[in-house]
């Protein structure tokens, strides 16, 4: 087992990197760090592709897939950044927990406002 692990060091590095990326994507509360985690994860998967597909004689298929995948990652990253910008404009924070807290407060204010309006209407 250990011998195999040492022999496949590219793959092991790729898997550990993708684990780090996944962890960042799930655990970071700051959205920019989440997006960085996403990029680490996807790049690690491409490293895995390259490591497993590399052969001095026949390189092409993984290279083509990685080219396609990179563009997909770029698009997804940009879209996530745009959403983050939108969130920042709305709440003034990049932290997803703080955004939740502010949203709850705002909703409570809104509910209180609506209740007050309804009471006025009834009276």
């Amino acid at each position: 087992m250990l011998e195999k692990l040492i022999l496949n060091h590219y793959e092991i590095a790729a898997v550990i990197l993708s684990g780090i990326g996944l962890m960042n994507l799930l655990l970071q509360r700051n959205l920019i760090r989440k997006i960085i985690g996403l990029n680490i994860m996807n790049t690690a998967v491409y490293l895995l592709f390259a490591a497993k597909g590399y052969n001095a004689e026949y390189p092409p298929v993984p290279a083509g897939l990685i080219l396609t995948g990179i563009v997909v990652t770029v698009s997804v990253t940009t879209f996530a950044l745009a959403l983050t910008l939108k969130l920042y404009e709305t709440y003034g924070t990049l932290n997803i927990d703080e955004a939740l807290m502010k949203m709850t407060l705002q909703q409570e204010e809104l509910e209180a406002k609506i209740e007050a309006q309804e009471e006025e209407l009834i009276s």
Partner: peptide
């Protein structure tokens, strides 16, 4: 990660 480590080896 551990599943993948076991797999890629």
């Amino acid at each position: 990660v551990s599943l993948l480590l076991a797999t890629v080896s």
